[in-house]
Write a protein that binds this DNA or RNA. Structure first.
Length: 564
RNA sequence: GCGCCCGUAGCUCAGUCGGAUAGAGCAACGGCCUUCUAAGCCGUGGGUCGGGGGUUCGAAUCCCUCCGGGCGCGCCA
């Protein structure tokens, strides 16, 4: 599929001692210079020649056959002018025959992925910051599934803990509340605990009662968290995010596997009871290098367990399922925590999951905080996106039924929201801005969808596109070539995204492809092409582009639209 | 203070396992709908790649250092 591989063979045959990876092929800075460029720095060194001399030497010594029209040295570079028709056939054939698998390396066949993401505290409606975890995790899952992995998506439900206790105490009538009211109750409960130590103390008491297994308390905790979880899943579901397993934290309160861990820690002399009667791990005994973050508390003086203690049991549970890849999507604030957990697990002779971090989405005023109510709710964000999209669709798609228009508007809204968040590298902070994240023009999801709608429009009028290609395909216009080589690079993009556990390159790829398609669209008429062969070839290029974009958007969790 | 991440155009971001004149979008200005969807296209202006050192034939990319921002560092989860 990589169109450059076939150029390497005659060079390798002519010069001994060169390996394929020494030949650094890539796109030239401008198409006027050539279709493909070879950087000779590495290979020249091996051949014991100056780069410029080596480039010149290749150009006179090597015969590339009919696939190459001309080879021109330019200093240390060697520029190839290709027989584009031949390359076009090979690239388009691959895309049109591999279809929904085009781009997948297939390396996940027979392998499994266990991924935990989102895991929002069930105490309120999710905000945009949390959504980065959910979207990033969901798209990673889609990426691995695309590669052939059998994925199992886990959601850890933090159904115990202080925050739930306070909520239960404060909102006695929780069963009568609707989900959207819970956030206010949660904010009030925290404010109250802040100024009223007695109330806060009651929260801990309730927590202890819960852990002792008091059935009535357990029921109340369950009711609150169930209401919240359902509400959260509804909002996330709108974005196309779904889970296979919900693991309730309360299930891991008394887990026998923790005894093993404690045993191992004791052997390392790494666990002790401190002056305030808490059970604490000294991580410096098991590999932690610095003083900061050295201590890790497992249990409070009253015997109730800390989050991390339960999470140890949960993590062991996940790992015992034996997946080939175990991913754990975490905000960057969890970095030290994950390292601490990993050290403890290792000390106990267990393996830890592979964490993948993302930086926070910030408001201009600072970090979002559910506890303080300083948030942009995901549902509000989606509603606003949907209403803006609906307005646009009303004006644009007058020939469609209201139902069809509504469906399109929702899909455009989701596309704008998901794309805006996923296209940024996960290790970068994002300053949340309504306008830029809800834009439908420029570098956006809707722009990519719009390209798909245009292709669909052409293909509807064209009819059946032949899947077979023979001989030299008459696609030699620069904008056809640029588009085609971009499509051909999709497998490499997917491979790199998988390796780096980064979705952003996929979004960038979709954007570039859509842009190159649009240039082609303006330069090269499809239906009104000059010859029948050209008409067919361009329709095939359209079909290949749509196929590739659909696959890329699929990883992003965005639907390619027929019309918009 | 210590550790990790980030700093590229007025704004939001690509590009970072070193390679030819640093790329998009938004915003600004000027054009383009009797030809496949104007959510579009073409053009103009806009950059000390945070500062300074170093390594290299070659640095936005690697190393050191300083500055600025984010995150974390013993009974939140």
């Amino acid at each position: 599929m990589n169109p450059y591989k076939t150029l390497a063979e005659p060079i390798l045959a002519a010069y001994h001692g060169l390996a394929p990876e020494d030949l650094d092929f890539g796109p030239p800075p401008k198409l006027e210079v050539g279709d493909v460029a070879l950087r000779t720095f590495v290979a020249a060194k091996k051949a014991n020649m100056k780069p410029a001399d080596f480039a010149a030497d290749i150009s006179v010594r090597v015969d590339f056959g009919s696939r190459v029209i001309s080879v021109t040295p330019a200093g240390p570079y060697l520029n190839f002018r290709l027989n584009r028709g031949v390359f076009a056939r090979e690239m388009l054939s691959a895309i049109l025959s591999e279809r929904e698998h085009f781009g997948s390396g297939g390396s996940g066949a027979g392998k499994t992925l266990l991924i935990e993401h989102t895991s929002i505290n069930p105490n309120a409606s999710p905000h945009v910051g949390r959504a980065r975890n959910a979207m990033y995790g969901d798209s990673l899952t889609r990426l691995f599934r695309f590669e052939g992995y059998d994925a199992d998506v886990h959601y850890y439900v933090n159904d115990i803990g202080r925050q739930i206790g306070l909520l239960v105490l404060h909102a006695a009538n929780i069963q009568d509340m609707v989900f959207d009211e819970v956030l206010d109750a949660y904010v009030e409960a925290n404010a109250r605990a802040e100024r009223d130590p007695e109330f806060a103390e009651k929260g801990y008491e309730l927590l202890a009662k819960m852990e002792e297994g008091d059935p009535e308390t357990a029921q109340r905790f369950h009711d609150v968290t169930e209401l919240c979880l359902k509400g959260q899943l509804e909002v996330l579901g709108r974005l196309g995010i779904a889970y296979d397993q919900f693991d309730r934290e309360s299930k891991y309160l008394k887990d026998s596997r923790l005894d093993e861990v404690l045993e191992a820690l004791r052997k390392n002399d790494a666990v002790f009871t401190d002056e305030e009667d808490r059970l604490v791990v000294d991580l410096s005994k098991i590999g932690h290098k610095r003083d900061e973050g050295r201590y890790f508390v497992l249990m409070r003086a009253n015997g109730s367990s800390m989050y991390g203690f339960r999470d140890l049991a949960y993590t062991i549970d996940k790992m015992e399922k034996g997946a080939d890849v175990n991913l754990w999507v975490l905000g960057e604030d969890h970095k030290l925590y994950a390292e601490q957990l990993t050290l403890i697990l290792r000390a106990a002779g267990k393996v830890a999951p592979e964490p993948t971090y993302y930086a926070h989405i910030l408001l201009k005023e600072g970090r979002m905080s559910t506890r303080e109510g300083k948030v942009v709710l995901l549902s509000d964000f989606l509603d606003e996106a949907a209403s803006r999209a609906a307005e646009k669709v009303e004006r644009q798609c007058t020939d469609l039924s209201p139902e069809e228009r509504g469906a399109i508007a929702e899909k455009v809204a989701i596309s704008a929201v998901r794309f805006a968040i996923l296209r940024v590298s996960p290790n970068k902070n994002v300053i949340f801005d309504w306008e830029s994240s809800l834009s439908f023009t420029g570098d956006t999801g809707p722009y990519v969808q719009y390209s798909c709608a245009r292709i669909n429009s052409i293909l509807r009028k064209f009819g059946e596109v032949p899947g077979e290609l023979h001989g030299e395909i008459p696609l030699d216009h620069d904008s056809e070539w640029t588009l085609m080589t971009k499509l051909a690079s999709f497998p490499d993009t997917v491979a790199s995204a998988l390796e780096r556990r980064n979705i952003a390159p996929i979004a960038q790829f979709a954007l570039d492809t859509a842009r190159f398609f649009t240039t082609f669209y303006h330069d090269c008429p499809v239906l009104m092409a000059e010859t029948e062969e050209q008409r067919t070839a361009r329709a095939q290029l359209c079909a290949a582009t749509l196929r590739t974009l659909t696959n890329a958007l699929g990883i992003l969790g965005i639907e390619a639209l027929e019309r918009m």
